[in-house]
Design a binder for these strands. Structure first.
Length: 866
DNA sequence: CATCCGACAGCAA
DNA sequence: TTGCTGTCGGATG
């Protein structure tokens, strides 16, 4: 067992020393044998940049380049999977980027501070579970205390009008005070001291004390400021310049304030700040989910959008004084605009990044022999624009940017200088409180000749889950279009941003739900976007949402970057481990140039595929096996009115479920059975004013005479084939599966085929990443040639073979038979034969890859559409 | 009439 | 708490 404390202190020492032996000493502390390290050293050919590689453990490359993320993207172009290592690391003189191939986490740190995240590399010493480092716990503690204070105040002031408003007003002023305290805008520890000394322990006069404190900041001539507040400076901050109503305090809330003010607020990590605020405002009732974007995800977005390019420009111009000056000038004019900024994570991270680039340029210039004048930084927070609907979050963004500016100033000058200048920046305020779907973006961030980059993570909300207000917003944004009621809320931002960057050299990129790149949304939204003369410039394919908050939202996201057609750039599709250049990126975030729209009827010669029957019953027409037992035992005649039902779950996992199924002519007889009558009454109640269909029946009453095909609408994406099957006339298929009634067996063959499965995976929607079969999108659009009877016969034989093969293992459920890790050879073989038969319907020459199959299908689809 | 979706939902390990 | 995998209902075209 390794001594973790020693490990951490070793990493700290190695990072601080930062000699040329960094990686070797690093590996040594993580328990790598001395012999291995000696061997690694031998491999070095003298080139500074040759990588250090311990197979299956770590791959480390040193670089002289300053932007590690760009280099990481570059490395992805050769596919990280080819490098056999758990950790991929890139480092330059000061910083290190590490990527964990298993957990897909990215760590970006200075070498000096690497010890704070030393647990990131625990897998190297055989520990998977991470411990939380003290550095992080302090910040989380601050966040939790702050949220606790908020909640306690709301409880303590219950009954007061506008409690939330009053409390959040106070919270923003307190947040300001704690930050101001940490950067020395107020003398350090002053807030804690004043509250401790001059308020009653019971908290009764704290409200009054704080009021006087806030007032004191705004009295320029200090007239009327009580002696005990004289150490507070005059700070002309417009957004706090109006008196506010304060909540009542008690012993507990006073104590919390004291505790919070004792914590160190000097580390404005936007990630932490975001989690802090999210925990406070995420209980919001106006149906907006507040989520902050993690720092690694922000980097995924800003790199390809503009940062990589700026760094390239820097690398190529750092030896030319004039070119450096031009670049500085360019940076000082860039505008960054987040129209859904929440607590400003994007803006703060980008501000820091640009500031760092700027200082690198300045440093390069100073070192040039012909360096003339003294160059100083000119990038400032008034180049950062934002819109945020939540007022509190909006204020936090302003404060976050301002204090980041203060911190950088302290870092560069050793102390806080030009305070008036800084305050002026804060007062200029380009962070607007408002609804981004309603106000003109151009008024907030005026288009000019200079570059504007729009970034962010706009709120997602599916069409059926939007509030009335959000629905109206969508209607308003797309007021010039028809057929827009199924838009996701986030689509508003994509459309408005496309209008904003169209025909300019501006560009935008958003983190967003993968729903926008799938299923019906593709056909609904993207043609409208492309009409604005823009195209997808880069994309990061889907990954699971993650941030450092407590409860991670269950959602799968993508990153999409969009540019105007007048200023195209090289196009890249990124995955977690690769980056490849493509000539074109479609809304599915793949390369072929195609958009598949919903079809009412099959475009090929295939029978119609309706959805199954929907109970629409709040469960009252459905019965579990034990309920059937009880019912039949008590009322044997009820047997006549019971049928098996099958949705996806029942079919795939071999579950038994029953329903009440009554022909109209038998209704009176059925009503004689009290439990059935009872159930029907419940359904009647539920359907009141909703549905005309009589309450003893499902909403649809389709039934087969012979056999019907069942196709699950949602199923696991891990299976090679979407399992489908036949059911007889005694089974009712529910709305959770599709069906083809009285289905000819050769159709089973078409739907089971690899060709069809590929098509469905590509053009249908998903539930997160699950397969979501749909008839209008995947079946009706499927291009399949007209085939002869003899072709149908041979497909039929393949189908019978598959069915026989399934019967041979009938003790298993479909899920077990099609378990991707455990499919029987027989079943695999019969499917393979079927695939070959189906593919011969398209052409004689065999297909060599799925890529080729898809391209062939898209081509056929495009031609069928004509 | 009948569909496609969910900043998901619910269960098991 | 994480991993796995499909419910349910209804506004919408």
């Amino acid at each position: 067992m390794m001594n973790l404390e020693k490990l951490q202190s070793d990493v700290k020492e190695i990072g601080a020393d930062n000699g040329p032996d960094f990686i070797y000493r690093f590996l040594l502390s993580y328990g790598m044998p001395k012999a291995t390290i000696a061997r690694l050293r031998l491999n070095i050919t003298g080139e500074e940049q040759s990588p250090v590689h311990v197979p299956n453990k770590i791959y480390y490359q040193f670089t002289s380049k300053s932007n590690l993320l760009s280099l990481f993207n570059l490395l992805k172009r050769d596919n990280l999977n080819k490098i056999k290592a758990r950790f991929i690391c890139i480092a330059n003189k000061d910083n290190i980027l590490a990527y964990d191939m298993n957990t897909e986490e990215t760590l970006l740190s200075s070498k000096k501070e690497l010890y704070k995240s030393f647990d990131f590399f625990f897998p190297l010493i055989g520990r998977e579970k991470k411990v939380i480092t003290s550095h992080v716990t302090v910040n989380i503690k601050a966040a939790e205390r702050f949220a606790e204070l908020y909640n306690e105040l709301v409880i303590a002031n219950k009954g007061t009008n506008d409690v939330d408003k009053i409390v959040s007003n106070l919270m923003s002023r307190l947040l300001f005070c704690f930050f101001a305290d940490s950067v020395g805008l107020i003398s350090r520890g002053a807030i804690n001291k004043i509250v401790y000394n001059f308020s009653e322990e019971s908290g009764t006069n704290l409200s009054y004390l704080l009021e006087s404190m806030f007032k004191a900041f705004f009295i320029k001539d200090r007239n009327g400021v009580p002696d005990y507040l004289m150490e507070l400076p005059f700070l002309d901050i417009h957004m706090f310049n109006t008196p506010i109503e304060l909540p009542r305090f008690n012993k507990r809330t006073r104590k919390l304030i004291l505790e919070i003010s004792e914590l160190d607020w000097s580390d404005v990590n936007p990630d932490i700040l975001g989690s802090l605020i999210q925990s406070i405002v995420s209980t919001d009732k106006n149906n907006i989910n507040y989520n902050f974007t993690s720092v690694p995800n922000i980097y995924k977005l800003i790199g390809p959008l503009f940062l990589d390019e700026l760094y390239e420009a820097y690398e190529s111009s750092k030896n030319e004084y004039q070119e450096c000056l031009n670049l500085l000038n360019r940076i000082s004019k860039i505008k960054i605009f987040d129209p859904a900024c929440f607590t400003g994570n994007f803006l703060i991270v980008i501000y820091k990044e640009l500031k760092e680039l700027e200082s690198k340029i300045v440093e390069s210039m100073r070192n040039l022999p012909n360096s003339k004048e003294v160059i100083t930084s000119s990038l400032n927070i008034s180049q950062f624009y934002g819109i945020e609907k939540n007022e509190f979050a909006c204020i936090v963004t302003r404060l976050g940017l301002f204090f980041t500016e203060c911190q950088i100033s302290i870092l560069q000058n050793g102390r806080l200088t030009f305070v008036d200048h800084l305050l002026e920046d804060l007062n200029r305020n380009n962070i607007i409180h408002g609804n981004a779907t309603r106000i003109s973006w151009n008024d907030i961030c005026p288009n000019s000749d200079n570059e504007i980059y729009v970034v962010g993570n706009p709120p997602y909300k599916g069409a059926r889950k939007q509030s009335k207000e959000q629905k109206d917003d969508v209607e308003f944004v797309f007021r010039n279009h028809n057929n827009i009621k199924d838009m996701d809320y986030a689509a508003c931002w994509f459309y408005l941003a496309s209008k904003f960057v169209g025909n300019s050299k501006n560009a935008f990129a958003f983190v967003t739900t993968n729903s926008l790149t799938q299923g019906q949304l593709v056909g609904l939204l993207w043609p409208k976007i492309f009409d604005e003369n823009v195209h997808i410039s880069f994309a990061h394919t889907e990954f699971k949402w993650k941030n450092s908050g407590k409860n991670n939202t269950a959602v799968t996201v993508v990153i999409i970057g969009i540019r105007s057609d007048v200023s195209p750039k090289r196009k890249f599709i990124f995955t977690q481990t690769t980056a490849y250049e493509v000539p074109w990126i479609n809304p599915y975030l793949t390369a072929p140039k195609v958009i598949v729209k919903k079809q009412r009827k099959p475009i090929s010669n295939l029978p119609p595929m309706p959805k199954g029957n929907m109970p629409y019953d709040k469960g009252h027409l459905l019965l579990e096996p034990h309920e059937v037992q009880e019912l039949v035992n008590q009322y044997p005649t009820s047997k006549k009115f019971l049928k098996r039902v099958m949705g996806s779950d029942e079919f795939i996992n071999d579950l038994e479920r029953w329903c009440i199924w009554i022909d109209d002519k038998d209704l009176n007889e059925a009503l004689l059975i009290p439990p059935i009558k009872d159930r029907i009454n419940h359904v009647k109640k539920f359907r009141l004013n909703k549905l005309a269909k009589p309450p003893h029946q499902f909403r649809e009453t389709n039934i087969t005479k012979t056999y019907s095909l069942i196709i699950p609408s949602v199923s696991s994406e891990r299976r090679t084939y979407i399992p489908i099957g036949f059911v007889n006339e005694n089974t009712i298929i529910t709305n959770l599966a599709f069906s083809i009634y009285d289905c000819d067996p050769w159709v089973f063959g078409v739907i089971s085929s690899k060709m069809h499965n590929l098509w469905v995976r590509t053009v249908c929607g998903r539930l997160e990443s699950r397969i979501r079969y749909s008839s209008q999108l995947g079946y009706n659009t499927f291009p399949f040639p007209d085939i002869s009877n003899s072709q149908k016969e041979s497909i039929k034989r393949c189908v019978y073979d598959i069915i026989t093969e399934r019967e041979n293992q009938s003790e298993k459920s479909i899920a077990q038979m099609y378990d991707p890790d455990n499919m029987s050879e027989g079943l695999l073989y019969t499917h393979m034969i079927l695939d070959a038969n189906i593919e011969r319907c398209y052409r004689e020459e065999p297909f060599h890859s799925d890529q080729e199959r898809l391209e062939f299908l898209f081509d056929l689809y495009n031609r069928k559409g004509d």
